[in-house]
């Protein structure tokens, strides 16, 4: 187990180094960083001095090493448009994105898993067929369209829920702000998290359904029934647990996707998260923000995958011990 975890950690570090190389390349070679920083009337001598001060004349490997060392200390340089350290900007935006992603992942799991179990166990029932048709809509409609539809229905027509923003937020600790503690904050969360989580929910539902159908055909489920175990035990202790390994894999990857690609939802709902900031950075060629976002996204994926790999050990005993 420890050997396995070390190996995975090493692999994760290699992945992060490769991504860092990409981010560095973008930072260093997409446009001239000095041109982006200074005004038009800066003289060539001043530019050269700045170049020297930023270390842009050093050999490339030295620059890369410096980039990695600084990134490891969360120092990603200064944003071109805001003239503020990128890490401060991210710290301000991260709580919004994480709260949104967490809520929509929770929504996808809490609704998707029971629906999947039901549809897997009662494959012929009318309700399961309804679930499947609805989930087809969830998969095929683009996110922004669902968002606009929800805004039109619940904000414009019914006027129940706000159409943009996070509502009222309360600071927790030195830098975190939360919308979980106020009524307006919670209300503001509902529409965006459904929009963001709908696709994941249908995916999880369909996955669980397919896995359940597969597992209930196996011999050990038949044998569990032949032993006279009540359906509850057969379905949940034996069938559901055996469907979990692939489900956790996909859920883990999807959670990464939710956090990293909340961009569209954040734009539709003007959600003040990282995605919105990233989009603005792209429009303004704000390279430091873009490369930091790239690194952060990669880090999230690698971290989640690592956790998923470790989770396998707790679910599947076959991975834990060698054969006798």
């Amino acid at each position: 187990m420890i050997g396995f975890a070390t190996r995975r950690l090493l692999q994760a570090m290699i992945v992060m180094l490769v991504v860092a190389l990409l981010a560095f390349t973008m930072f260093r070679f997409v446009g001239d960083p000095v041109n982006q920083m200074v005004g038009i009337e800066t003289s060539i001598e001043e530019r050269e001095a700045l170049r020297e001060r930023l270390g842009l004349n050093d050999p490339i490997p030295v620059q890369f090493f410096r980039f990695v060392t600084q990134a490891a200390q969360f120092n990603f340089g200064t944003s071109y448009q805001f003239r503020q350290p990128v890490s401060d900007l991210f710290a301000k935006r991260i709580p919004a994105t994480l709260e949104l992603s967490f809520t929509s992942a929770l929504f996808a799991l809490v609704v998707g898993i029971p629906m999947g179990i039901y549809a897997g166990l009662n494959r012929e029932s009318a309700v399961s067929k309804l679930f499947l048709s609805v989930s087809l809509i969830g998969i095929s409609l683009p996110t922004f369209f669902i968002g606009i539809l929800l805004i039109f229905l619940f904000s414009v027509t019914l006027q129940w829920l706000p159409s943009f923003g996070r509502g009222e937020v309360v600071p927790v600790g030195s830098w975190w702000t939360t919308g979980f503690l106020t009524v307006s904050g919670l209300k503001a969360l509902i529409l965006p998290s459904i929009t963001l989580g709908l696709y994941q929910m249908t995916l999880i539902m369909r996955l669980i359904r397919a896995e359940m159908l597969e597992v209930i055909r196996t011999d050990y489920i038949k044998f569990a029934r032949a032993r006279g175990l009540p359906d509850r035990l057969v379905n949940f202790r034996h069938a559901l647990k055996n469907t979990l390994v692939p489900v956790i894999t996909i859920t883990g990857l999807q959670l990464g996707a939710i956090i990293a690609f909340a961009t569209i939802t954040e734009t539709v709902f003007q959600w003040p998260g990282m995605g919105l900031m990233f989009l603005q950075a792209v429009q303004n060629v704000d390279i430091p923000i873009m490369s930091a976002y790239l690194l952060l996204t990669a880090f999230l994926f690698v971290a989640i995958n690592f956790i998923v790999d470790i989770l396998y050990f707790f679910i599947d005993p076959r991975l834990r011990v060698g054969r006798p």
Binding site: T218, D219, Y220, K222, F223, A224, R225, A226, R227, G228, L229, P230, D231, H238, K241, N242, I315, D316, P317, R318
Partner: peptide, 22 residues
């Protein structure tokens, strides 16, 4: 269902697949 296991036991062909691996 109450008969199964209680009054009638069953043994299947493939011992490798008839036990829950988890």
């Amino acid at each position: 269902r109450l008969l199964r296991g209680r009054k009638i036991g069953m043994i299947f062909q493939d011992p490798l697949t008839s036990l829950d691996p988890l």
